[in-house]
Design a binder for these strands. Structure first.
Lengths: 327, 327
DNA sequence: TTGAAAGCGGTACCAT
DNA sequence: ATGGTACCGCTTTCAA
């Protein structure tokens, strides 16, 4: 079924038939109605390719994530999805497997058939991101690329709240369980922990974990205890969850013996004990990125802005007053 | 940059330039090479819409899931993603929010711009699925629609293994914590538990939970104990995880006081105690569905087949010999 | 082995 | 308010 068929059936020209869908205000109401009736009858629907070829707009966007299996992303994806749907956009999903090279491949593959990109925690060189943004409406999540629209989860605030709480509870030595050092999120959280600790007069060490995984968290407990810290702030909930398990394995109790704070609040209250964590981010950043992108697609003249998503500490059960463990 | 530009630069006709990419065997090697060199130099890449308009093929597929935030799906998505990428396909992701109506909307929106669909655990009426499959290459995951290509995770086998193990460990009364009764997965698992229990001479009850959630699992522990069962097989890991928490809250120990078996193995060993569960499904079903779909796109004459993905019991720590709880 | 030209299905400018 | 028509960028007969 093509427009021509509909036009013929309705006894109008192709132009008129086309306008019935795109600019109905230019056509007499009854004509519009008649055309639409025939269209429905014939089961007509526009060919997105033909339309895109002619208009240069696709009504598609691309969302690229480093790892859909990382629990931070599904809520984000969901939000982008549903928002896009409402705005009558479809979304391509790309999973870069945390590799800059695959990101590039995905972007190149997709760039001709989308009106814009959302890059979540991209690993690409800043230069490439800027180049892309210059060509195509693009918004970046959790990467602070100057000159590009970006939405950043301001975990720093929540992390500071966590450190302050810990300090107030008598912890004098804490540890930051670091994630991938090349990510903006880690850099920001690391600095926040260190800064807040210094401000609060608390000693703070860093344990490098690299890829944020449950196992990494579980296995760092030994060295964590060895640092003499009585509390830890983890790069994310996944690591914190692993730490919980690690303590349980060595027979120590959280929070009685040791306090643990997570980040992202993606495990909600499903850990034991329920994780005190920095909440707010995943879903909200997705929603914000999408609306920014849609605005950008509508009017690419918008000046690049930096949007911060608030994230605050949620106090659950994994934090308690300091009590020193056997050394 | 269009093909015409490349052709002009290389001093050949558009036809020749086109063939250099699509049918290089028809063109003299050195000509092909020259054209490709100019194309690279000019930064040319084909316009997918133009190509699709002309060939009717898009090199895109759509993957529709009921809820990307359900941990069963991310590994599946990941697998489809990476496989598609390798086959030079891009993938649209749709999240139906568990609603048949949204599934339909997504399918209609996407059907003109994809070469095929993968529907994961679709809620749509069978009739609609068959209609779609008749029009467009389609493969369904975890729904047994006669006459349509489908891949089904054969959790039944694993569930039977679980029941047998439980029986062997002296459990004489078990419970099935049911998921959404309208899903194929629940129907299959439910029947498997009941059947295996009867075969093993074990009493089996069903507790309806509806939407499979951590909370539902946690809150059903009271009624679970009330049934007099000493072990439970849950519809999925998420529920089982909740059950674990529920027991912990009432001060009972799993597996000493009660045995719990999950399904899907999506939480891996991240629960405490590590969950004994029916493993193998998510990622494998994604991979299988993709390769089936690609074959189907290549040659839509293939007879609809039903593929079963093996899923077996993985014995971890949440199961132990029966020991009756205080009644 | 290469070129000319007719579409693929719409859109939008220019007329009427 | 409606129609005629030239593209949009590429593929693919048909000829040469």
């Amino acid at each position: 079924m093509t427009l021509a068929d509909v036009a013929r059936a309705a006894g109008v020209s192709e132009s008129t038939a086309s306008r019935a869908f795109t600019r109905p205000d230019l056509i007499r109401d009854d004509t519009v109605e008649r055309i639409k009736r025939f269209a429905a009858e014939l089961g007509y629907s526009v060919d997105p390719h033909a339309r895109a070829l002619s208009t240069g707009r696709t009504q598609n966007i691309a969302l690229i994530v480093p790892d859909i299996a990382n629990p931070f992303f599904p809520p984000l994806v969901r939000e982008v999805e549903s928002g896009a749907e409402q705005a009558d956009f479809a979304v391509f999903l790309g999973d870069s497997d945390e590799r800059a090279s695959r990101e590039k491949v995905l972007v190149d593959r997709l760039s001709r058939q989308v009106d814009g990109f959302i890059l979540a925690s991209p690993r690409m060189p800043e230069e490439q991101i800027r180049e892309l943004a210059a060509r195509t409406p693009t918004v970046v999540i959790n990467r602070d690329v100057e000159g590009v629209h970006r939405v950043l989860v301001d975990a720093a605030t929540g992390v500071r709240e966590a450190v302050d709480l810990l300090a107030a509870m008598g912890h004098t030595s804490i540890a930051y369980l670091a994630g991938p050092a090349e990510t903006w999120a880690d850099q920001e959280r690391r600095a926040a922990v260190l800064g807040a600790a210094e401000a609060a007069g608390v000693r703070a060490g860093v344990i490098e974990l690299g890829r944020p995984s449950y196992e990494a968290g579980r296995e760092c407990v030994g060295s964590l205890i060895a640092t003499g810290a009585t509390a830890a702030v983890a790069f994310d909930d996944v690591i914190a969850h692993g730490v919980l398990a690690g303590f349980s394995l060595v027979g120590l109790n959280v929070p009685a013996d040791f306090s643990v704070v997570g980040c992202d609040d993606v495990l909600a209250a499903t850990t034991l004990p329920a994780l005190t964590t920095v909440s707010g981010g995943s879903a909200a950043s997705g929603a914000e990125a999408l609306s920014t992108l849609l605005a950008l697609i509508d009017d690419s003249a918008t000046a690049p802005e930096r949007t911060a998503i608030d994230a605050h500490l949620v106090h659950r059960a994994s934090v308690a007053p300091a009590r020193h463990i056997r050394r």
